[in-house]
Simulated scan of single mutants.
Amino acid sequence: MKTKQRAFLKWAGGKYTLVEPIRNLLPGGDKLIEPFVGAGSVFLNTDYEKYLLNDINADLIHLYKIIKRRPKTFIEDARKLFVPATNQAHVYYGIRADFNLSRDPYERSLYFLYLNRHGYNGLCRYNSSGFFNVPFGKYRAPYFPQQELEFFAEKAKRATFTCEPFQHSFRRARRGHVIYCDPPYLPLSPTANFTSYAGNGFGLDEQAILAQKAIDASAKRGIPVLISNHDTVFARELYQSANLTPLQVHRFISQNGSTRNKVGELLAYFAPQVPGLKVGK
């Protein structure tokens, strides 16, 4: 794959800038399993025969399923929301309210894409009541990602989408499959808070469970697992049995988005305890 493909969603913590080092560490296999698919940059920039793409965010997975099933209709309908008349604060908050009240998966999917591209910094955040609460982004002309949507729809023919706890994705893995995990990141400092994503908490206990699942999958079942996370003391403790690749990544780290500094990133590769698997995809 010569050029990198961008996701059609804006996504905090997306892996577009890390595609090359991640791809270099992923081994070959029949299927790539992503328990935390997010915007799908790794999916879009690898070449496995099949994919199992999971996320706990039901809105995200409904969107992906609809684009796979009805790409042309979805793109035509979504384009109508990307006009100057809809790029106003009062319209944005009206659509956000409609999204929060809607129970129709197709309507919610259209609104989800609109909110993602018109909301502040492309954030995906829900309050304790499960309502999407990202404020208006005030962009001059939000980009309509038609090419990216079409690419995703075509590649999604190889993918199965699920919305379930990450542990279930591990259970679905078989010999010959590869697992890549991009979980909600560990805080950079002990006082930092986790962001609310899809109304589900992912704390230190879940981080430890994920690390143990990776250890068990690689050591007991011969399934390679790659995990990305912040490079912290706790991360290195969790992943001490893995092959660690530290990186420095540019990222917005202040709340107002004006400060872009390098932060430590860690790629932890849990090699399968079986011979014959070559690194590099």
Rank of each mutant, 00 (worst) to 15 (best):
F74G: 03
A235R: 09
R172Y: 14
N116P: 07
G276P: 01
P135I: 08
F99Q: 03
Y239L: 05
G13V: 08
Q88G: 07
K4A: 13
K10A: 04
N193G: 04
K138E: 12
T162V: 10
R172T: 04
E49C: 02
R70V: 06
N200L: 07
A173W: 15
N54Q: 07
N87A: 11
M1N: 09
Y239A: 08
V134C: 00
L244S: 02
V233T: 12
A214N: 06
N57T: 04
S241Y: 07
A192H: 11
S41D: 12
T245C: 08
F170T: 06
R103M: 03
T17L: 10
L63Y: 12
P145I: 12
N54Y: 11
Y197G: 02
G122Q: 08
V225N: 02
L277P: 00
R103P: 00
A12D: 07
K65L: 02
P142Y: 09
V274I: 15
P35L: 10
P35M: 12
F99P: 06
G222L: 02
L101I: 00
T160M: 11
H230V: 04
I223E: 03
K220R: 14
I67R: 02
P35E: 09
K281I: 12
L210P: 02
L277D: 06
A12F: 10
F99R: 00
P142M: 10
L267A: 07
L60M: 08
S258H: 10
G130V: 07
L244F: 09
A89L: 07
A141T: 15
A156N: 09
Y48H: 07
E237V: 00
L204V: 03
G28K: 10
F74L: 03
K155A: 11
A173Q: 10
L25V: 13
N193T: 14
R70L: 11
Y51M: 02
L52H: 05
Q5D: 06
L52Q: 04
P84A: 08
V83P: 00
A78M: 05
A268H: 11
F161T: 00
V178I: 14
F151P: 00
P224H: 06
N100I: 06
L188Y: 14
D59P: 01
P183Y: 13
N116D: 11
K15T: 09
L53R: 04
T160K: 10
Y92K: 04
Y185M: 05
P275M: 06
A217M: 02
N24D: 15
K281G: 05
P184T: 12
I215D: 08
S102E: 01
D59S: 03
L18D: 05
S254V: 03
F252W: 04
V274N: 01
Q88W: 03
A85S: 13
H62V: 01
E49S: 13
D231N: 14
F144L: 08
S241Q: 10
C181G: 08
P190K: 09
K68R: 14
L244H: 06
R221V: 01
F43N: 00
R117K: 14
L238Y: 02
R117H: 13
T245Y: 12
I253N: 14
S241I: 06
G199S: 05
P184Q: 12
D104Q: 07
F144R: 03
Y16F: 15
G199H: 02
N127C: 03
K213V: 01
Y120M: 10
V225P: 01
G276K: 01
T232V: 10
A208H: 10
